[in-house]
Design a protein around this nucleic acid. Structure first.
Length: 276
DNA sequence: AAGGATACCTGAATGC
DNA sequence: TGCATTCAGGTATCCT
């Protein structure tokens, strides 16, 4: 899944459906993705949900928290009804279910993860932000990253701008889809060394990133492959991308053909005319 | 210190 | 049809 808008979508769903539930049991189907002792959280009530960059924190009533990262294919699915097969046996959401939380009021929360890169860790609430992933996060778009701070970060490196804006330790929230779209919107070449952006381009890019992230949230995220919200529903941003996954198609503004290349090992889409 | 390649996995799409 | 290769919303880690 998983850039800021997708995780925000999950956060809002958890707040709406899962906060207030008590955890009755925890079934670990794939040990390596779950760190901590399940018995630590049995009987605890889910009291608050927080998102930091692309990470999630679920706070519990017993001063423990669940720290979660979906990496590429993690999903959290909430159900308050039992879904069974024709023999009456309860069905997990899919064959990649790695963890099942049974909640009170006959509800369940499933963690699915096809590629098994994600993690869930039980950590005392007052220590959860000491996890290196959270501790090392840079300032976050739409939250505590100002244009001035953004400019300062760009000035410090000649790293290609696309790689820099996706570096969570420098600035948090942007991944490959929204990086491609923001650079398209700002008409900046993904390869351009960060410190060579002039003030006009810097401002344009900053506004564009904030804009595409907001647009992603409004559209409930991008379901390019397997992202779904807490109810298993797809988002809509994949139908609204400006340039991501559009190689061979025509650029919206100049009708040139969109090209695809690799930058930092990631698929990179750009219009050779608009993004020189 | 920074930048690049590689590892972690499974599956879908593409190529021959 | 089948088999091999490449790529996928991310990040750690190891190497230059």
């Amino acid at each position: 899944m998983p850039e800021l808008p997708e995780i925000e979508t999950v956060k809002l769903g958890l707040q709406k459906y899962v906060v207030g539930h008590t955890i009755n049991t925890v079934e670990v189907l794939l040990k390596k993705q779950f760190l901590g002792k399940p018995e630590t959280i049995i009987g605890a009530k889910i009291i608050a949900i927080e998102r930091l960059g692309k990470g999630l924190i679920i706070n519990l009533s017993n001063n423990f928290s669940l720290a979660i990262h979906f990496k590429m294919t993690g999903q959290l699915i909430y159900r308050d009804i039992k879904i069974t097969n024709k023999d009456g046996v309860e069905q997990a959401p899919n064959k990649f279910t790695r963890l099942i939380f049974t909640l009170d009021r006959n509800a369940k929360l499933f963690y699915n993860d096809l590629r098994q890169f994600g993690w869930i860790k039980i950590i005392p609430t007052d220590k959860v932000k000491n996890l290196s992933f959270f501790k090392e996060l840079g300032p976050e778009f739409l939250k505590d990253l100002s244009l001035e701070k953004f400019r300062q970060i760009l000035d410090k490196t000649k790293t290609p701008i696309k790689i820099l804006i996706m570096d969570q330790k420098k600035m948090a929230g942007v991944g490959n889809i929204y990086a491609n779209d923001a650079l398209c919107k700002a008409k900046i070449n993904p390869q351009k060394p960060a410190n060579l952006l002039n003030n006009e381009e810097t401002k344009r890019l900053f506004m564009a990133i904030n804009n595409v992230l907001e647009n992603g949230i409004k559209n409930n995220g991008a379901s390019e492959t397997n992202f779904v919200n807490i109810l298993g529903e797809k988002g809509n941003y994949q139908n609204k991308t400006l340039i991501y996954n559009k190689n061979g198609q025509k650029c919206e503004s100049c009708k040139n053909i969109i090209l695809k290349t690799m930058l930092g090992g990631r698929g990179t889409y750009y219009c050779p005319n608009c993004q020189k």
